[in-house]
């Protein structure tokens, strides 16, 4: 199940989208999410879905991979939409029971919630699938840089973030190994009631925690031996470069925004 989930995963590649500057991608993804709320009528939805379809095409990944990847999240979206549906008053009332009701306004808003949610999650998935965690960290750092004037430790935060991201796969591997070892000793991780499941987690969490502390200790020693004296006065190996493609991407989104506003009033 978790293996299926695509949100938050990165797939190395060389598509046009992979090569965009992470700053551009971060800002544009956020921008897209904001304008997703400008959708009002079916024309605007068609436009937005056509756009995201084009974006998926540009990732160079298979369409069915996205469909399957978003699958586990669809229930979350459906659940949110149903809540909207049952609690929104207004317009013609089709059905009601206590405080629950289905109204024409309810149908409209829940459909809108469903579709916008889908747009947003697909865009977030596109962002993480095509942008290496490190690049996201770099992008965030660059965007946070103005905060240095208020003495926010931007460089330190960025290094911490990149080291943390670097250790995610290592710790996931370790968690898998420990789970296997405990399963071999008779632990059932996905069986039994809540209490039993919580108890099964202890033999996983303690070794994972002990191991992580050991790793952190080793890492600190290694960093110190390599001359790390704090995040100040360091030079940077990795710098972000703005290309023409990034400018084009910005223009495309702006055009999308304009068309969206026009279609809204049709």
């Amino acid at each position: 199940m978790l293996e299926q989930l695509t949100l938050g995963r990165y797939i190395p590649g060389h598509s046009w989208l992979h090569r965009l500057d992470p700053r551009a991608k971060l800002v544009l993804a956020c921008y897209f999410i904001v304008i997703a709320f400008l959708t009002t009528n079916w024309l605007t939805y068609v436009l937005m879905f056509a756009f995201i379809g084009g974006v998926i095409f540009l990732t160079g990944l298979s369409f069915s991979y996205f469909v399957r990847g978003i699958g586990p999240l669809i229930w979350l979206i459906v659940f949110t939409a149903i809540l909207q549906l049952l609690f929104t008053p207004g317009g013609h009332i089709y059905w009601h029971w206590g405080i629950l009701m289905i109204t024409s306004t309810g149908i409209q808003t829940s459909t809108a919630v469903f579709l916008r949610f889908l747009l947003i999650i697909t865009m977030a998935t596109v962002l993480t699938l095509t942008t290496a965690p490190l690049a996201i960290a770099d992008g965030v750092e660059a965007l946070l840089r103005p905060l240095r004037v208020i003495h926010f430790p931007v460089a330190q935060t960025a290094l911490m973030l990149s080291v943390a991201l670097r250790f995610v796969p290592t710790l996931l591997d370790e968690a898998q190994t420990i789970m296997n070892a405990q399963r071999a000793r008779g632990v059932e991780f996905n069986n039994g009631g809540l209490i039993k499941r919580l108890r099964a987690i202890v033999p996983l969490l303690i070794p994972l925690f002990v191991g992580a502390i050991g790793r952190a200790d080793d890492l600190a020693t290694a960093m110190e031996s390599r001359g790390y004296q704090g995040a100040t006065n360091r030079t940077r190996y990795r710098v972000l470069k703005w290309h023409n493609a990034d400018t084009i991407a910005v223009v495309v989104i702006l055009v999308l925004n304009v068309v969206l506003v026009v279609l809204r009033h049709m």
Binding site: E174, N180, A181, Q182, A184, R185, I206, P207
Partner: peptide, 20 residues
């Protein structure tokens, strides 16, 4: 479960699984 019991597995660096 019976297979787990009859086939004991010692993983690489098994000391990493100690917890009690």
């Amino acid at each position: 479960k019976s297979l787990h019991q009859h086939v004991g597995m010692v993983f690489q660096f098994p000391e990493n699984q100690l917890f009690d």
